[in-house]
Amino acid sequence: MTLLHLEGVTRTVRLIDAPPLTILSGVDLDVAVGDRVSIVGRSGSGKSTLLNLLGLLDNPTTGVMLFDDRPVQSFSSSHRDRVRGRDVGFIFQQFNLLQGRTALENVMTPLLYAEGRAFWQRSRIAAEMLDRVGLGHRLTALPDKLSGGEQQRVAIARALVRSPRLILADEPTGALDLETGAAVMTLLDEVATDSGAALVTITHDPNIAATATRHLRLDGGGLRPVHDPVRDRAHDPALDAVRGTAPATMPDAMLA
């Protein structure tokens, strides 16, 4: 079943005193339930912009984008918010946990925007989800008392607590060391499989990209398939950086 359908999607942003910047110039993409998609691309190629579109945080400038076979441009603002809350789960590179709130409260957050059973039983559901990611004993821990890997596990629990049909992960292992990153990805893959959700992962790490079943590269404002991400290192930005051919605009964080 097709969840997302993009055809010739563009995204152009207006700049204050410069000509409009076209970030995406024609993206075609289909995501079905249960899909595992990885997207790689240079820094600044528009990966996050694309992910924001997929997660209904942003609207395409032109092109067709269907969510559940309905054009997203027709959604009212609050309807988009509700669909996002119900069907989409985000995982960010910087975890983006709510500071000052316990792990449990963080995982409960999406349920605050739910209704019925999910809303009223949010505490129990969130606790179960945390247990599921192996943090059942850290319910009351604050984010700054958790390690990076643990924080990302909390974020995964939060993204999955409403059983979304689409999980969007923007460099989920970017702030983690290799080993922890791999463990987190394994976990993410497991829970996504359990809930039957589609998983779209943006990553720099070819090994992480390899865990997906479809591999795509964002380049020049469009998506093209990559057949073997581990071999496809020629365009890996991390390696570009190491070779000293990285674009001048590459953020320091990328080089670190």
Binding site: R86, F90, N96, Y113
Partner: peptide
């Protein structure tokens, strides 16, 4: 502002 952005991305409407 960041926190509000996070909440919005998890389904909080503007009205909410």
């Amino acid at each position: 502002i960041r926190e509000i952005g996070i909440r919005r991305s998890f389904g909080a409407t503007a009205g909410r």
